[in-house]
Write a protein that binds this DNA or RNA. Structure first.
Length: 485
RNA sequence: GGCGCCUUGGUCAAGCGGUUAAGACUCCAGCCUCUCACGCUGGCUACAUGGGUUCGAAUCCCAUAGGCGUCACCA
């Protein structure tokens, strides 16, 4: 087989949809697992949709996701430039060639949103074929008059076109279904369907990995390859990434499903490696293995086209949360504390104990953005809720809570050396003296201090984090509240 | 609507003619533990429907239904 070369060809719209990221990832993994090349090409042929800074954004995103192009804008390569708007002369040349060979023609019709000066041609059943067999004199005159035109591809009217897709096998579409699509727009820019073919051939792309939305336009591309006498690349059309709405409906992942771009996810406190790892598994699996946590190198090692699935996959935030949590657990306390720091707001007290707090948080949160919520009770006094004190499993009731807190208060009050060690010793001794199950003793204290059932750390940690004064006042207040229930 | 693609639990998925139909997330239960959490163990829930082919079908074929895509001078 010739050298494997894949490409990722986004248009600069200003954000990186998770589906696009996955496409880029698969193209990258496939190239790298075959010692091939991965190319980044910017498809900026739509001037209206161009967003300032978008190219930079794409590069930064790929970089954060650890997807490194071998060729591309700035990086360069044997087939530069890698930005389509800088290749206009190339497309024009090939389009003219097609016109000369009779596979394309100039069309002087107005744009579809303008009032038409010509009637759609009933003979061909459509508007698009109107200028097919224009009189050469008319063409010459229009050209001389400077009438704007587009170049359209002349599709065969009969027969069918078949192409092979790695995932779907042979796909056949009747040529009569293909319209005479525009190749070169009025402004001289090529359309996607044209530039794509030209560039993929010129850049020696061996495998085209892209979304299924292109499956029905692939026959048009195939015809183009045939017109030019070029060898066909191998097609791989990926199933889309879906999202599930609150009402349970499934549709292509979009804004209504929440965070759907790589950047959104980063802002929501997910790790880039976890996002990449999760996304890799959305539509691909390593066969012969149940491994789920993959480093980029392991993905490259394990990747193969056979593992790609052809049915759509629904993006599941629960699983992403789990996976991100797994990545947290594998981080050192120090790097977790550092990475999480930007996402949290602390008061002076907590600031000084941040690293300790972070070590407790590491195994208890699934994304950075959760942290503020889960530690707010350390800064603001929580609301009182008697219900929380009742715990069947630990045999805790309101009465029992009063009893325990009252007794514990005496012991806590005596602690002078407010360190985790001393606190642990004191509380441990106190718990033992009650003759009760540990869980029974700790439950009311936890709830009394925090106002919640699940906390970062146990009672000892809570006392330490809160400080003596704060701990005592919360417990006293809780006692009063409990007694007035 | 025409054309095309897809269809195993709530979700991701293994399975390529013979299996008790893997595994993971979620949820639930139990265990462990200096207490919630973490961890461990176990449990619930699936082959869209109807016809074939075959000794035998989640696996092959055909219909039906549903979902998705496409029909731009967007990609």
């Amino acid at each position: 087989m010739d050298r494997v070369r894949t490409r990722f060809a986004p248009s600069p719209t200003g954000f990186m949809h998770i589906g696009n990221l996955r496409t880029a990832l698969y193209a990258y993994l496939f190239a790298k697992s075959n010692d091939g090349d991965f190319i980044l090409r910017i498809e900026d042929t739509d001037r209206a949709r161009y967003v300032e800074g978008a190219v930079e954004f794409i590069k930064n995103t790929l970089n954060a996701a650890k997807i490194f192009p071998d060729e591309g804008p700035d990086i360069g390569g044997d087939f530069a430039p890698y930005v389509q708007s800088q290749r206009m002369d190339i497309y024009k040349r090939y389009a003219e060639q097609l016109v000369e060979n009779g596979h394309a023609y100039r069309c002087f019709c107005r744009q579809s949103d303008e009032p038409s000066t010509v009637e759609p041609d009933k003979k061909f059943g459509g508007y698009d074929r109107h200028c097919r067999d224009l009189d050469p004199d008319v063409i010459a005159k229009n050209l001389a008059d400077g009438v704007p035109y587009v170049i359209r591809q002349k599709m065969p009217l009969a027969g069918e076109t078949t192409f092979f897709d790695v995932l779907h096998g042979n796909i056949t579409i009747a040529n009569s279904e293909l319209e005479d699509q525009v190749l070169l727009k009025r402004d001289g820019m090529p359309t996607y369907n044209f530039a794509n073919v030209i560039d993929d051939h010129l850049m020696k792309v061996s495998h085209i990995i892209r979304g299924t939305e292109f499956i029905t336009s692939t026959p048009k591309h195939v015809l183009l390859y045939q017109f030019f006498g070029w060898e066909l690349p191998i097609f791989i059309h990926l199933a889309p990434v879906m999202g599930k709405a609150d009402d349970g409906s499934i549709s292509k992942l979009s804004k209504r499903h929440g965070a759907t771009s790589f950047d959104d996810l980063i802002k929501a406190g997910y790790l880039p490696e976890a996002i990449t790892n999760y996304v890799a598994l959305l539509g691909w699996n390593p066969k012969n293995s149940n491994q789920e946590i993959f480093s980029m190198d392991e993905l490259i090692e394990a990747f193969s086209l056979e593992g790609l699935s052809k049915s759509p996959a629904v993006f599941d935030y629960d699983k992403l949360d789990w996976m991100n949590g797994e990545y947290f657990k594998r981080m050192s306390d120090q790097s977790f504390a550092d990475s999480a720091r930007n996402f949290v707001e602390l008061d002076d007290n907590l600031e000084s104990k941040w690293e300790f707090l972070a070590s407790l948080l590491k195994t208890r949160v699934s994304k950075f953005s959760e942290i503020n919520g889960s530690i707010r009770f350390l800064i603001e006094k929580p609301a009182f809720d008697a219900e929380l004190f009742i715990n069947k499993k630990n045999k805790v009731t309101v009465e029992k809570s009063i009893e325990i807190i009252e007794a514990a208060l005496e012991q806590i009050d005596r602690i002078d050396d407010w360190t985790l060690e001393t606190i642990s010793e004191t509380i441990g001794a106190f718990a033992a003296s009650t003759q009760l199950k540990l869980g029974t003793v700790m439950w009311p204290l936890r709830v009394g201090l925090s106002g919640q059932k699940v906390t970062p750390g146990g009672v000892n940690e809570l006392l330490y984090l809160l400080g003596k004064k704060n701990s005592l006042s919360r417990l006293h207040e809780t006692l009063d509240n409990l007694k007035s229930v």
